[in-house]
């Protein structure tokens, strides 16, 4: 296996995915969870840039990545808005407090 830039990017994407899902699975702080979602989003957008590069349509790949940044940000904003409300109502950011609905 040769270390082309492409492999490096691919490894980067996989690492970001790993970090993101690890955060989602382990973290109990709501803010950290939203950060983990953002990391996942970044993995996806790098993947798009890479995909555009692979098939020779770098421009389109980058355009799509821009769109993802916008969409991702909106989700982050909504998530943070909910986090503010959670802090206000529950007095904590621990998602253990957010497990009353079950069964």
């Amino acid at each position: 296996m040769t270390w082309t830039p492409l492999t490096l990017v691919l490894i980067g994407v996989i690492c970001l995915l790993g970090v993101g899902f690890y955060g989602l699975l382990i973290s109990r702080n709501l803010i950290k969870i939203i950060v983990a979602l953002q990391i996942l989003g970044k993995a996806a957008l790098i993947a798009f840039v890479m995909a555009g590069n692979v098939n020779g349509q770098t421009g389109q790949g980058q355009a799509l990545a821009m769109t993802i940044i916008v969409a991702d940000t909106i989700v982050a904003v909504v998530g943070l808005a909910l986090a503010v409300q959670v802090r206000r109502r529950f007095g904590t950011m621990d998602i253990k407090a957010l497990s009353n609905l079950k069964g």
């Binding site: 996942l40 890479m50 995909a51 098939n55 909504v78 909910l82 409300q85 609905l101």
Partner: peptide
């Protein structure tokens, strides 16, 4: 509180799913 809790869960799970979709699209695109 209950509505807020369900909203947070909904958002996080959906957003995680949506990232997976994006990865799939990237793979197809590549």
């Amino acid at each position: 509180p209950a509505a807020l809790e369900s909203g947070v869960k909904y958002l996080v799970q959906s957003a995680a799913g949506s990232v997976l979709v994006l990865l799939g699209i990237a793979l197809v695109f590549a």
